[in-house]
């Protein structure tokens, strides 16, 4: 088997004495789309935030492109990388947040080009050209100079997607990207994600949109109680529904 792009081994996370998850193993290969489903509180968002190093984790390892991120062994002691290195490691992943988290003081173009200018050190003109190319890709070529407050939720989330993908990450992480949206705005965001999937992007998506997960994923992960309870193809997960917990969880969704 080829080396996977993202390899998570025995990952464990506690908030103090409260266990969030434990013993999580997950592989994502290049070009694969993996969805994570599960009830709220099952630890799926926290898992995603660990991969982006926004959360600490206490056990296990995350390998991106074969290299450990976040922590390394030094004299058989587990040590967190310094902040500057962590900032660089975050470039391997792109994150799309549930609440968009656009920078309110910048235009759409400013949001997308900031990382290109300050992290990738592109000159302003080039960064902005690149940024507007990505905004066009998500269908917002005409809104480059709008501020977040002038955009609908769906448009804001598409800017956030452009901002993440413009950094050219190896893998895109989506944290419930449509949960904060009005129902009529969900479609436009999901369509953008589907388009990215069709173009061969590697993605890990935490979602409550079961139909979308079924359509877009190569692999679906069901998390329950801080563990990966089932993993398989969409058909295996959504149609065969092998475990009782999975049946119970899926029965709460009517679609």
């Amino acid at each position: 088997m080829e080396d996977s792009l993202l390899r998570i081994r025995r990952l464990g996370k506690w908030f103090g004495s409260l266990k969030v998850f434990e013993g999580v193993d997950l592989d994502v290969n290049a070009g694969e789309v993996v969805s994570i489903i599960g009830a709220s509180g099952s630890g799926k968002t926290t898992l995603l935030r660990c991969i982006n190093l926004l959360e600490t984790f206490q056990a296990g390892s995350i390998l991106l492109d074969g290299n450990p991120v976040g922590y390394h062994e030094e004299n058989s002691k587990r040590k967190r990388f310094p902040e500057r290195i962590i900032a660089r490691q975050r470039l391997l992943t792109g994150m799309v947040f549930q609440q968009f988290n656009l920078f309110p003081h910048m235009t759409a173009l400013g949001n997308v080009s900031l990382g290109l200018r300050k992290v990738k050190k592109l000159p302003r003109a080039e960064a902005e050209k690149e940024a507007s190319r990505w905004l066009e890709r998500v269908g917002l070529g005409d809104r480059t100079h709008s501020r977040p407050s002038q955009l609908s939720g769906g448009q804001q989330q598409r800017v956030a997607i452009a901002r993440a993908i413009a950094m050219n990450p190896k893998i895109l992480l989506f944290d419930e990207p449509t949960s904060a949206l009005d129902p009529e705005l969900v479609g436009e965001v999901l369509n953008v994600i589907k388009q990215l999937a069709a173009d061969g992007a590697t993605m890990l998506i935490v979602t409550h949109e079961m139909r979308f997960a079924y359509e877009v994923s190569d692999k679906v992960v069901f998390m329950d109680n801080g563990k990966i309870a089932s993993m398989g193809t969409p058909t295996e997960i959504f149609e065969e529904r092998k475990s009782d917990r999975l049946k119970e969880f899926l029965s709460t969704f009517n679609n």
Partner: peptide, 29 residues
């Protein structure tokens, strides 16, 4: 909101860059 700062982290900005480009201008406004 901390989410906005996390978005800065997620695109690889260093703490100093986040302070300078995100926190300071938003705070002033």
């Amino acid at each position: 909101p901390t989410g906005i700062l996390e978005a800065g982290q997620a695109i690889g900005l260093t703490p100093l860059q986040i302070f300078w480009n995100i926190q300071l201008p938003i705070m002033f406004k």
